[in-house]
Design a protein around this nucleic acid. Structure first.
Lengths: 232, 232
DNA sequence: CAAACAAAGATTGTATACAATTTTGTGTTC
DNA sequence: GAACACAAAATTGTATACAATCTTTGTTTG
């Protein structure tokens, strides 16, 4: 991702593309929770007017990645401990069922794609790119939701996974910010075996494990210049 | 709700207030699925510029009440049979658990409020206001989610309940568009008794019943002039 | 009459200008 | 140095102007 979409591409940035770029930056921890997202600054970075930026920010506010306060502007959301708990609780309610359904539906191509995700994730780690690895780790979950072929629930899971990256930035207390390696492997195996019950149970314990790795007793995030963060 | 917020109130309509007004109109079946939502027309109705209207429409598109097509404008969403099925399936996954939690947490005040909802709903029916009754019927469900005090899941349920009103408009095949009277009463009783297991089971069967009342084999909705629909 | 094409009108997407609100900077007083 | 008041600058909210795209209408052709 270069400086700004408009600078090097034939198409000007749209609200959607800016929202996606910001979402990715947030997900990869290139922008920290609490970071001010000034409309003028973003308009400069992306080479569009404030109108387009405002639409992007409004969209991101709907999935709670961005917090907009009237007359005070937008910033990257900073979930409270309560919100963090709720997000993981919601995941624990939705994702096991999704894994169950996915195990019944997964094709060879699906399994291959999941395995590619896992190896891409580890490649990113080896390349000292933990942000990328974190993003891919989350994408693994949304990919399982896609396989389950229930778009409504998959949409909720996508939102929850995105918010999880903010929560991890704020509350994670393990050295690695990632899901444990073997948990994803075991899930892929259960899906490959078409073992719905196993997939469901593995997903549940995986999420309970993630939830338990959160220290939900307040701490502060770091800040970073906006332009730097958006230029990996 | 009079002609337009700006016409009679000290405050001009905001994106949020317009989105709420449109959502209510959709929920009460005053605007049908598929209805074109022209920016200029809405700007006239609400006495604001297109900028504010666009923000409202974008917000509504995020909860899938409105469908925005680039360069073609916005219309009230028209869920497909697949989407309809998914929405109720998601509700069947989320709401029983929510009812379970609500039964454990409900206060006397909560129960009184739910009972008031039920009687308001019947008053609306008696007043030959089925749209209002439908809205209140849905609100009963979101109220239970509020009692459960899990904002993340309650947010999802709110979205699903709103979309349900569109689905009912398109696919409902019973004479009354409402939840059955005794189902809500029984739920309130289970909550009042603090019987979490009963509440969960009653909610599940209630939703399965609603789901079964849908004829998910395509049919068309009606259309209505926009100004008429927004002036109850 | 139907089909194809062009022109006119309407609508949507976006930039820019203006109004309103907030933040920052400066000076004064204690 | 801290607190306060005020002015200036910056940012956010919204209207309006302009550009791009789509839809409707009118005209021509077979």
């Amino acid at each position: 991702m270069t400086q700004g979409t408009a600078s090097h591409a034939a198409q000007p940035a749209t609200g959607d593309s800016i929202a996606q770029a910001l979402s990715l930056a947030i997900h990869e921890h290139r922008i920290a929770p609490g970071t001010k997202l000034g409309e003028g600054e973003l308009a400069d970075i992306y080479g569009v007017s404030r109108t387009v930026v405002r639409a992007a920010l409004l969209s991101l506010s709907h999935i709670k990645l961005v917090d907009i306060r009237r007359n005070k502007g937008a910033s990257v959301a900073s979930p409270s401990p309560t919100e963090a708990h709720e997000v993981f609780e919601a995941r624990e309610l939705l994702e096991p069922r999704t894994a169950h359904t996915a195990a019944r539906r997964a094709t060879q191509a699906d399994i291959a794609r999941l395995e590619r995700h896992i190896s891409d994730e580890h490649a990113a780690l080896d390349a000292a790119d933990p942000g990328r690895a974190l993003y891919l780790s989350g994408l693994f979950h949304t990919e399982i939701a896609r396989i389950a072929d229930q778009a409504t629930i998959a949409g909720f899971i996508e939102t929850l996974v995105a918010r999880s990256s903010l929560i991890i930035a704020l509350y994670w207390r393990r050295e690695s910010a990632l899901c444990e390696k073997h948990a994803h492997h075991a899930l892929v195996q259960a899906l490959a075996d078409g073992n719905a019950t196993q997939a469901e149970e593995l997903m549940r314990s995986h999420l309970v494990d993630l939830h338990s790795a959160l220290d939900l007793r307040e701490r502060n995030g770091r800040t970073l210049s906006l332009r730097d963060a958006l230029s990996p």
